[in-house]
């Protein structure tokens, strides 16, 4: 064993001039180059097919891409996604807190909810909500087992659109509950105790300490769920909610241009997904506050760094 003291004694005296940076020829990776070349050939072929196969009917795609009905359908899709996620996240937070409650009735109720909604197909749930009026022809708001304040026919309350949002949102709540629960459990117990010892009440600890820090764990899977929701929302086409997929289905049922119209819908789904992905990145950055010593670089910055690394590597080779 050499002690630290001796190690520092072995250091050369500082001389004023700094030693030159290491310039070494990097290791070559021929395998990687071969792989990259094979992928490039396949990609070229794909692009070639996309451009030259006239059955894709790119002209028709362009023609329908921005028609009013498609844009309205897109708007409905985005609206459904946003509202269903809002319901799902709120419900998820409530269910997660219930699940972690000391009260057995609350935690078992939450458990049962999650069990039921994760255990049955979303499509079945949607059709169920759509047909709710068959089960309960009249709906009312009032005291349980007591007087009613408002009541009316179920069909008036549960329009297909409401059935769609409810179906998607209630189902999402079950998945979000598990995500939020994982987030809550990830928060350092010691900080919770510190907050109690300062005189904070349970609700304050939850809002100020636990949930903000749970976010770091909750957001990545929530972004994933939102993108999933964007596409699951197309399921409500089966109960005739006029969202993006339903809209293009209506059009191609009339014109038989199935493939180009499905491409129109897919391009829009991709576009929204791209926006969501970028949004998620910035939300994640926001909640990374204090978690690491430095915020991760933004994507542009990362690209810049990569280019610089390539440039530097080349310089050393010559």
């Amino acid at each position: 064993m050499v002690s630290n003291r001796e190690l520092t004694d072995l250091q050369p005296e500082p001389t004023g001039t700094r030693a030159a940076d290491i310039r070494a020829v990097p290791v070559r990776h021929p395998g990687r180059w071969l792989g990259a070349a094979a992928v490039a050939v396949l990609m070229a072929q794909l692009v070639h097919t996309l451009l030259t196969n006239h059955r894709f009917e790119w002209g028709v795609v362009g023609q329908y891409f921005t028609t009013k009905s498609v844009l309205v359908g897109l708007l409905h899709t985005v609206e459904l996604t946003v509202l269903a996620m809002a319901i799902g996240i709120s419900l998820g937070v409530i269910l997660a807190i219930m699940r972690l409650s000391q009260n057995r009735v609350l935690s078992m109720t939450s458990w049962a909810y999650i069990w039921f909604f994760r255990g049955t197909p979303l499509l079945v749930q949607l059709i169920f909500w759509y047909n709710l009026s068959a089960l309960f022809p009249r709906l009312s708001v009032g005291v349980p087992f007591g007087p009613e304040f408002i009541s009316g026919s179920a069909n008036a309350f549960i329009t297909t659109y409401v059935a769609g949002i409810l179906g998607l949102g209630l189902n999402e709540g079950a998945y979000m509950a598990e995500i939020v629960r994982a987030g809550i459990l990830s928060v350092d117990e010691g900080q919770v105790e510190a907050a109690y010892s300062l005189g904070l009440k349970r609700v304050q600890v939850l809002w100020r300490i636990v949930l903000p820090q749970a976010m770091k764990v909750v957001i990545p899977p929530t972004g994933n769920q939102t993108i999933g929701m964007l596409k699951s929302s197309s399921l409500v086409s089966v109960i005739s909610v006029p969202e993006l997929l339903f809209t293009v289905q209506i059009i191609y049922a009339r014109t038989y241009q199935t493939i180009p119209l499905l491409i129109v819908a897919s391009l829009w789904y991709l576009a929204v997904t791209t926006v969501l992905t970028i949004g998620q990145y910035y939300v994640e950055r926001h909640f990374a506050k204090g978690a690491s010593r430095q915020l991760p670089p933004s994507p542009l910055r990362k690209l810049g760094n990569d280019l610089k690394a390539i440039y530097d590597a080349r310089r050393y080779v010559h």
């Binding site: 900080q191 010892s197 005189g199 904070l200 204090g290």
Partner: peptide
């Protein structure tokens, strides 16, 4: 709970592992 919290507020506690709130300055 309200009363327990009120009394705890008068007792300061310093922990072995500091337990600072990581998301706050």
């Amino acid at each position: 709970e309200r009363e327990v919290a009120r009394r705890r507020a008068n007792i300061g506690m310093v922990f072995q592992r500091f337990n600072l709130f990581a998301h706050m300055t």
